[in-house]
Computed example of a mutant assay.
Amino acid sequence: MTKTENPNGGSTQIKGQYVTLELINQSHIASLFKYLGFPDNKQIVDYVQGFPYVENEEELANHLFGSLREHPDLTIYVIKACEAQLGPPSLSDSNSHTSVLGICGYRLDPPANIAKLDDIIHSPLLQRTYAATEAQYLMHRQLFEGLPVAYRRVWVVSNSFNFRSRQYTERIGYKYEGTFRKDKITRWGTTRDSDCLSMLDEEWPINKRVLLKWLNSANFDTYGKQIKKLDEIRAQEL
């Protein structure tokens, strides 16, 4: 698959101020492998079900492109950015987005008008940054506004022990639906419970407003520190 082909519809490249989402292709693998920190930083995929500990670029490519072949409903974007410009007050433009700092993806179910988030992996450099939240905004705008089918529901499941992931998902507007008990077997052979969260199409407009207000450069001081948290902005919007 090349970056100019998207069998599931929608944009092949989504440009933001600090990040660009681009359909994954072979040219991204070396940079992605480097910034995720493989093979030393294997723990970055501890909670990513089915994602192997990879030792080299070939193994990473085999897993990602193998998943795309196995699941025709799957779309994977890489998250490209300038590693030195990941949020205010620095200035950035898409021409400087050359480092592959993570991936995000989803699986579409057009007959049901439902999308399920797939693997979202941020490099240590991308984690807890403005750019990471902008990437989530761009992907969700694509799902609710940018596809041929109007999707009614986006949902995600995560390991119940992955508290940071659930907290962040709720901050951007997802609502907890319940826990799938004994849902999976982990890579260590232990039982995993999975938390299920979702966002509906009627909830997207307010979540979009909250994200855009948080992403506004006026919400950051001269040191790049946020002035209002997502939760504070949401409370004002409700």
Rank of each mutant, 00 (worst) to 15 (best):
S160H: 07
Q142N: 14
K184L: 15
R128C: 06
R164H: 14
L125T: 13
V149K: 12
L138H: 02
R153N: 06
G146T: 02
S160C: 10
N162R: 00
I114D: 05
I172V: 15
S158M: 15
Y168W: 14
R141Y: 09
L143W: 02
Q127A: 11
W155R: 03
G146H: 04
A132L: 02
N162Q: 02
H140K: 13
R141C: 11
Q142S: 10
A131S: 05
L125Y: 11
L138R: 02
W155D: 12
Y130N: 04
E134N: 04
N159F: 10
F180V: 06
L143K: 03
S158L: 12
Q167C: 11
Q127K: 13
D118P: 07
S165C: 11
D183V: 12
Y130T: 00
V157W: 02
R153Y: 01
S158T: 14
I172N: 06
W155E: 13
S160T: 05
L126Y: 04
Y174M: 15
V154A: 03
I114Q: 07
L126W: 07
Y151R: 05
L117Y: 06
S158Y: 14
G173C: 14
Y174F: 13
Q167R: 15
E145N: 00
A150P: 00
Q142T: 10
R166S: 08
K184D: 11
F144I: 05
Q167M: 11
S158P: 04
Y137H: 10
Q167G: 11
Q167D: 11
M139I: 14
M139P: 00
Y168L: 07
Y137S: 09
H140I: 05
S160F: 01
Y130L: 02
K116I: 12
R181C: 13
V149L: 09
I120N: 00
L138C: 07
V149W: 06
M139D: 04
A150W: 01
G173V: 09
T179H: 08
L147M: 09
G173Y: 07
T133R: 08
L125H: 11
L143G: 01
R166G: 07
K175F: 11
E177T: 11
T129H: 04
F161C: 13
F163C: 14
R181W: 09
Q167N: 13
D118K: 08
Y176D: 06
I114L: 03
A150K: 13
V157Y: 09
H140G: 02
P148A: 07
R166A: 13
N162K: 01
Q142L: 15
D183F: 12
N162V: 03
V149D: 09
Y130A: 03
A132D: 00
L147Q: 00
S158A: 13
I120W: 05
V154K: 07
N162Y: 05
V156P: 02
N159V: 08
L125E: 12
I121N: 03
I120M: 07
H122W: 08
R164Y: 12
I120C: 03
A135M: 04
K184G: 08
T129Q: 05
L117K: 01
D183I: 08
A135K: 00
K184C: 14
H140W: 08
Y168V: 07
S123C: 12
R141T: 11
A150D: 13
P124H: 07
L147H: 01
D183L: 09
G178A: 11
G178T: 04
M139E: 06
V149T: 15
L143M: 09
I114E: 03
A132G: 03
Y151W: 01
S165G: 06
S165E: 09
L125A: 10
